[in-house]
């Protein structure tokens, strides 16, 4: 399901904001990992930020909802909230797939 819209050499810098190891956060991380492996193998970085440990970082990316996945690169910045269980919507959010 690789889309032709993205440049093959583009690196995806992804940042996942969580707040402790809640089931939702754990789920989000698992889902993200799976999606990246399937669609962005070898060209992604995931940074997990736990706001309980670093609350100051919340305002930087204007985080309200938890979990939030921020696509830092490629630009523009996109935000995806929720536990990433809806794969279709995650792909749309990451611009890996157009809405049909």
């Amino acid at each position: 399901m690789e889309t032709k819209l993205t440049e093959p050499k583009e690196v995806y810098v992804l940042r996942l904001y969580v707040a402790g190891q809640t089931p939702k956060c754990m789920m989000a991380f698992v889902n993200l990992k799976k999606i990246c492996e399937e669609h962005l193998a070898g060209k992604y970085q995931i940074e997990v930020i736990d706001l309980l440990e670093n609350p100051m970082l919340a305002s930087g990316d204007r985080i309200l909802a938890i979990p939030t996945l921020v696509r830092k690169l490629p630009e523009p910045v996109r935000k995806i909230i929720g536990d990433l269980s809806n794969t279709e919507r995650v792909l749309i959010g990451l611009d890996l797939k157009r809405i049909k």
Partner: peptide, 14 residues
């Protein structure tokens, strides 16, 4: 983009 269950913990933390 909303992709599932979420909460406003980020707001609470801020």
């Amino acid at each position: 983009e909303e992709t599932g269950e979420y909460d406003l913990e980020g707001l609470f933390i801020r």
